[in-house]
Design a protein around this nucleic acid. Structure first.
Length: 511
RNA sequence: GGUCCGUUCGUCUAGGGGUUAGGACACCAGAUUUUCAUUCUGGUAACACGGGUUCGAUUCCCGUACGGACUACCA
């Protein structure tokens, strides 16, 4: 087997879509598995769609998820440059080679002429007008014009394109690694533009030329490219590179969670989940789209989730580190059908990875959030909070957002709990408990518990009956981590103060 | 419309000529947790349809339906 060299080749037309990240990931996994090379090539041949900052964004995104580029934009390499806009001379050379070999030709048709042709064909009952082996005989190109005319037009720098001369009758077959043999008749392919009138190549030419020159062994890309893959096969053939042609693998698309169609930013916005790895601010509109990173997803969780969107190991193992994915991944186990995007599963992965972290790491999430809030907290306290919260969080931000009561006494109390559990017995117990706690020389979770049991026993009231009332007085809510631990963490004085405040506030409310 | 691709629980999927069609997420129920969550146990739930081939098809073949992609001097 030849050296595995794969490329991720995005266009810098905006933020990197999550589906693009998955494509990059599959490429990366294959490369690493075979000690191959992962290449980043920027396909910026459309000047009109260029978006400033997009290229840097793509690089940063890949870096964040842990996909390392061996060769390409940002790192260089033996086949530099890796930005297609810097390789225009190369493409022209091969376009000319195709012309010389009779596989391509100059076309001088204006947009209006093209439009007129389409109109005429439609009127004649042709459903899909194409510039092809039939119609090209009626257009203004180097096949219909005399040699002298063509020469003059070129010398006068009349705007023109170079088109591929697709044969009239030929069966083009391609063996896709995921889909098997795909056959298309050349009559269904039109004479695609290879070089645009601005002197830049189209995707089709640039992609084939670069993949060849960069010795790409596998082209792993989205299924949207499948229809044009036969065209690319044709190009390899005409360029004389048939034997060096890479293997193709067309990935199933990421579909929207409900309904049909491919996943779009709009869907993600509507359903409230990110579509980009990192937060992206559209330079044109100023719109900001929150990324997976900023939303609290861990890169290893995102990767694990993405890897399973269309691929599976064939075992019941669900959790895979990048290294494990590299070992286990195989193109053969990629599915054919489109995959609906389920953000709930992503959250589950995130939860798994978050819980696997040490208390120290979890505490650091809390400490970071507290720093932003300007709240002081000891390492020891943060560690304790992390320990009691770890089973209930999905995102790092949850430590702070769901644990605010550790730092702020509740100002309001859950109405529902109050109406159900706040009664004379509760007031009796809380009053006595508050006094008992205040008199304690030492205080921790165990003592808090035994003290509570003593108080309730003395009053002849079941502990369970008033526990919710105690909780709501301490945290303001009806649910949360172990209450005794919460009391230990906030400390004796705070416990007393909070009960006191609740006793006063809630009583007033009820009355 | 045309071309190409696809179709197993709600979702991601395993499987593959004879299986109680397996797992995960989600959901529901019970246990534990004097709350909630966690954890544990259990449960609901799928081979799109119609023809073949076959002793036997979810599995192979052909249609149909449905879905998707593509159909630019965009990638």
């Amino acid at each position: 087997m030849r050296d595995v060299r794969v490329r991720f080749a995005p266009s810098p037309t905006g933020a990197l879509h999550i589906g693009g990240v998955r494509t990059a990931l599959y490429n990366y996994l294959l490369a690493r598995q075979h000690n191959g090379t992962m290449i980043l090539r920027v396909e910026d041949t459309d000047q009109n769609r260029f978006v400033p900052g997009a290229e840097e964004y793509i690089q940063k995104s890949l870096e964040w998820v842990g996909i390392k580029i061996d060769e390409g934009v940002g790192v260089g390499g033996p086949h530099a440059p890796y930005r297609q806009s810097e390789r225009t001379a190369i493409y022209m050379q091969y376009a000319k080679q195709l012309i010389d070999a009779g596989h391509a030709y100059y076309a001088f048709d204006t947009e209006q002429e093209l439009e007129a042709m389409r109109e005429r064909l439609k009127l004649a009952g042709v459903p899909t007008p194409q510039y092809n082996s039939i119609t090209r005989t009626q257009m203004r190109n180097s096949l219909t014009l005399s040699e002298d005319e063509v020469k003059k037009l070129l010398e006068d720098k009349v705007p023109h394109v170079i088109r591929l001369k697709v044969p009239r009758k030929e069966e083009i077959r391609l063996n896709d690694l995921i889909r098997g043999w795909v056959m298309v008749h050349s009559s269904q392919i039109d004479d695609k533009v290879l070089m645009k009138s601005d002197g830049l190549p189209t995707y089709h030419l640039a992609n084939v030329v670069d993949d060849y020159l960069m010795k790409i062994s596998h082209v792993i890309r989205g299924e949207e490219w499948l229809p044009s893959a036969p065209l690319h096969v044709l190009l390899y053939k005409f360029l004389g590179w048939e034997n060096e042609m890479p293997q193709f693998a067309h990935l199933p698309l990421l579909l929207k969670p409900d309904g049909n169609g491919k996943l779009s930013k709009r869907d993600a916005d509507q359903l409230g989940f990110p579509i980009f790895p990192l937060t992206w601010k559209d330079p044109a509109t100023g719109d900001v789209a929150v990324g997976y990173k900023e939303a609290g997803y861990l890169p290893e969780a995102l990767i694990n989730f993405l890897a399973f969107l269309g691929w599976n190991p064939g075992t019941t193992q669900e959790l895979f580190s990048m290294d494990e994915l590299i070992k286990t991944f195989s193109i053969e186990r990629i599915g054919k059908a489109g995959t609906k995007f389920d953000i709930l599963k992503a959250q589950w992965f995130n939860q798994q990875y978050l819980r696997a972290k040490s208390d120290e790491e979890l505490a650091s999430y809390l400490l970071d959030a507290l720093k932003n809030e300007g709240i002081a907290c000891t390492q020891d306290k943060a560690l304790k909070i992390a320990a009691v919260m770890r089973e209930r969080v999905t995102f790092p931000k949850d430590f702070w957002e769901q644990g605010k009561f550790f730092f702020h006494a509740p100002k309001a109390f859950d109405e529902n709990v109050v109406s159900k559990k706040w009664n004379d017995d509760a007031v009796k117990v809380l009053t006595a408990y508050k006094d008992a706690v205040a008199a304690l020389p030492d205080f921790d979770a165990t003592i808090a518990k035994t003290t509570l049991e003593q108080v309730t026993a003395n009053l002849g009231i079941g502990t369970g009956k008033i526990l919710q009332a105690l909780r709501v007085s301490i945290t303001g809510a009806g649910g949360g981590p172990d209450l005794m631990m919460i009391m230990e963490i906030i400390g004796k004085d705070e416990v007393v103060n909070r009960i006191e405040y609740a006793l006063q506030t809630i009583k007033v409310k009820v009355a």
